[in-house]
Write a protein that binds this DNA or RNA. Structure first.
Length: 360
DNA sequence: TTTGATGATTTCCT
DNA sequence: AGGAAATCATCAAA
């Protein structure tokens, strides 16, 4: 009606527009259908940090339910405000009209009053939008907390990472490039690879005794691969890490160091683990797998599902950057840090896990 | 439900 | 900025 006309000239408040846009983007405001799901999708995408993770149906619906709740409240409140605003406006207009019998009141004056009322109510509306935005943000942050969404990596990924780790036990510090390749292979992000190596190093160091079992396992595995490939046919000459441009796990980050390959952690079982002989053959398998691995194309759906059961292709991984001194990283400066006590880095007996839970 | 394993985050250090 | 160490939060097997 005539009331509407006055409002149209309101200058678009940038703050209000921002809030509106956000609410629409989050699926709180805007079209009824699809809004919720689009918001949920957005949340999922954001949660995964981009590369897309599997939608957890439960969390998904949980998030959607909460969002719907917010949406409901928002719309109810908004309606209430609008109704109150209209009622109040018409009330005032009627009053003015009544007054116009006793004194002349210009229509412009009425319009002015109406716009004042509108402004007041839109300020309230803005507050509502603001608090709704905050609620959505809180909801999202709760759902987006990565720790709440932790998933174990696939077996395959773990194998790939472990193989690299134990092949470079002397210097398990993959370069950025290597991390990227590992990430690609495992279908995880580079950050996750960094996390994994950080965790692995510290946990290995804290519990070398137990880790040795694992180390033996991987050493044997890699050695077996090596033997198999060597038998398979004329490969590149083993022991020649530089024979190919892109070589696999280079077992000797820097050969010739005092510690030799792998230092004190390599000959774990009298297994006579021979790094040099392995590099060449892993690559033979690797080339066959390379295209398969590349097909995963990154971090995508199903990455947490048991898929791709091939032998971990550890090819083409450039050696560690070598910027770090590889000599016995396990003993390097076990800094007490903030904790202070319990710095028994070598937990050699009593394989009590270093894990201290806060809860009983 | 308990408990060890594990991915992620935080804090501090170099 | 990257790593070590501690810690948190969740998963998953027993």
């Amino acid at each position: 009606m005539s009331i509407r006309g006055a409002q149209d000239e309101e200058p678009p408040d940038p703050q209000l527009m921002r809030l509106d846009n956000m609410l629409i983007a989050e699926g709180v405001a805007g079209p009824e259908k699809g809004g919720g799901s689009s918001a949920a999708t957005a949340a999922t995408a954001a949660a995964s940090g981009g590369p897309g993770q599997p939608d957890n149906a439960i969390e998904h619906s949980d998030y959607r339910a909460k969002l719907a709740q917010i949406r409901q409240i928002y719309h109810t409140e908004l309606e209430k405000y609008e109704q109150a605003c209209n009622e109040f406006t018409t009330h005032v207009v009627n009053l003015l009209r009544e007054q116009s019998r006793t004194r002349p009141i210009a229509p412009k004056e009425i319009e002015r009053m109406v716009s004042i009322i509108r402004r007041k109510f839109s300020a309230i509306e803005m507050q509502l939008k603001q608090s709704t935005c905050e609620a959505v943000m809180i909801l999202r942050s709760r759902f987006l907390d990565a720790r709440r969404k932790r998933r174990n990596f696939t077996k395959n990924s773990t194998v790939v990472l472990n193989e690299y780790f134990y092949s470079h036990l002397a210097n398990p510090y993959p370069s950025e490039e290597t991390k990227e390749q590992l990430a690609k292979q495992c279908g995880i992000s580079v950050g996750q690879v960094s996390n994994w190596f950080g965790n692995k190093r510290i946990r290995y160091k804290k519990n070398i005794g137990k880790a040795q079992e694992e180390a033996n396992l991987y050493a044997a595995k890699i050695a077996a691969q090596g033997a198999q490939a060597t038998n398979a046919g004329p490969q590149t000459s083993p022991g020649d890490p530089n024979s190919q441009g892109a070589t696999n796990y280079n077992m000797v980050p820097r050969s010739g160091s005092g510690l030799g390959s792998g230092g004190m952690y390599m000959n774990l079982n009298g297994d006579n683990f021979q790094p040099e002989s392995i590099g060449a053959n892993v690559q033979s398998q690797a080339s066959a797998l390379r295209h398969v691995v590349n097909q995963t194309g990154g971090y995508n759906d199903g990455m947490y599902e048991p898929h791709m059961q091939q032998t971990p292709s550890s090819e083409a991984l450039s050696p560690t950057d070598g910027s770090r001194d590889e000599k016995d990283w396990t003993t390097s400066n076990f800094n007490p840090g903030a904790g202070g006590e319990n710095n028994d880095a070598t937990h050699l007996d009593g394989d009590e896990p270093p894990n201290k839970r806060s809860k009983v």
